[in-house]
Amino acid sequence: MQQLFMASATIIIGVFGCVGYFFVSNLVLDTLLPPRGPEAGRNISRAAQIRPWLFLLPAILLLSVYLVYPLVVSVVLSFKDSQGASWVGFDNYTWLLNDTKFRESLGNNLLWLLVVPAAATFFGLIAAALTDRIRWGNFAKAMIFMPMAISFVGASVIWKFIYDYRGEGQTEVGALNAIVSAFGGTPQAWLTVEPTNSFLLMVVLIWIQTGFAMVILSAALRGIPEETIEAAILDGASPLQIFARIKVPQIWGTIAVVWTTITITVLKVFDIVLTMTNGQWGTQVLANLMFDWMFRGNDTGRASAVALVIMLMVTPIMVWNIRNARKEMR
């Protein structure tokens, strides 16, 4: 209770503090450079130069401390030893290159990058195309979209239950093993079977991300000009042809956006691997490896080096995003 009281107090202090800061700082500016009197013109233009920075100051402060500063420190730490005390040059990076667990993580991450965005975008596109054509489409959409609200940990519990293995001679209560035995196979502890287990983990993320892809692609499909589709129908195109040759080519831009957004999520995937296998049985990924070295290995140098590898993999998308955003603003 005391804790909730503290939280509410923080909200009130935070909100009033924010509003107060903006109000007072604007007031001070207007008093120092009053927009009237003999120098009104000069004052107004000066105030107009300062005011944006008053509005931006808290945001810039938070962003610098919480995102920019760590970026710099991480680079520095990656050249230092496990406690961040002395310089070790490229030691952490040479260690990376020779570490088998790192190679395994990198390989797995690449596999995730190939499979998850492709599968989620594909299913999302199918779901969008199907649900737009039927009356109960909105309900169907809500159902497919629902996993977006579920935490990665919650989703891991849900899917671990599906992959559950009870042991020989016992009734299998995991759906996967029940299906396998129904078709005459032998139940297995699926999460320990390489390399199938990595794909089983990917299924969880695909399950979560498909809804996101569907929502965005569905909006794009609806935005296609009707004339192109009417023309295709008049020319005798089948519904399948219309979808594959008319609609999809017109939304390539959106597909690329969806793809890259999911790619970023994939690079940061962590909770699923941590809670389902903790990187055992050949399922390690970079984000979880970094977490491992941070908490269990207690080695800030190596952990920072791994984090920088993730950053490096995100960078091309970042550059691409910035260029697109600038193009749009012009």
Binding site: I310, M311, V314, N321
Partner: peptide, 9 residues
């Protein structure tokens, strides 16, 4: 798109 992992330590 900056990965959270970078900020933690």
């Amino acid at each position: 798109v900056v990965p959270l992992q970078l900020s933690l330590i």
